[in-house]
């Protein structure tokens, strides 16, 4: 038999984050079209998303149950870990015409917050470049139905737009490498 092992250190950022990878992919690069990639997402956006899941402010199917298992310090550590990973370039079948239309609409409508073609986000705005289209479509549907609450200023931009234009925008963001 083995004697009791010496004290172990508390979980590191990598130890905490690796447990998420079964659903979000190794280092947060998702291979499943409805599961969001976390790799390269901003630290602020992940932190805010996790805290909203934890408090119940953002409804989700499973993230609420999981987020409740982590302290704020652990959430920050995981957010930092995923933000440092290389952006995960997805290969998706996307409609070229929609991408072009979205490209022409994005700067004036969404560009104030989803900056650098969606590769970055202002403050806690999530990056969307190369994110899975089906995931973003599901999120947009939740915003439009009121299930997920839109930031006031984003709502002002989104509300007047047609479903087609919104979908074109999501195609554009999904296409950005």
């Amino acid at each position: 038999a083995i004697s009791a092992v010496a004290q172990a250190a508390p979980p590191t950022a990598a130890m905490l984050s690796n447990a998420c990878a079964g659903c979000h992919g190794t280092n947060g690069g998702s291979a499943g079209p409805t599961m969001p990639s976390l790799a390269g997402q901003s630290k602020e956006a992940i932190t805010v998303a996790m805290k909203k899941f934890k408090s119940g402010e953002r409804s989700g199917s499973i993230m609420g149950r999981l987020a409740k298992g982590y302290s704020d310090a652990e959430i920050t550590a995981m957010a930092e870990f995923f933000s440092k990973q290389k952006l995960h370039a997805t290969t998706q079948a996307l409609d070229k015409a929609k991408i072009a239309k979205g490209a022409s609409l994005q700067e004036s409508n969404c560009g104030r917050c989803h900056i650098e073609d969606g590769k970055e986000g202002k403050d806690d705005t999530p990056a969307m470049a190369s994110q899975w289209l089906p995931y973003m479509q599901m999120q947009m549907a939740d915003y439009l139905s009121g299930k997920r609450k839109m930031p006031e200023k984003m709502k002002e931009k989104v509300d007047p737009m047609s479903k087609e234009d919104l979908d074109a925008l999501l195609h554009f963001y999904a296409s950005v490498k």
Binding site: G32, S61, I62, L66
Partner: peptide, 25 residues
């Protein structure tokens, strides 16, 4: 923390799509 899906099956359709992505990942 943790637990099971809502008892009223309000999430069951969306969880079926997430389950597929779970397997892929």
């Amino acid at each position: 923390s943790g637990g099971v899906s809502p008892a009223d099956y309000s999430m069951s359709k969306i969880e079926a799509t997430y389950a597929e992505s779970w397997l892929r990942n």
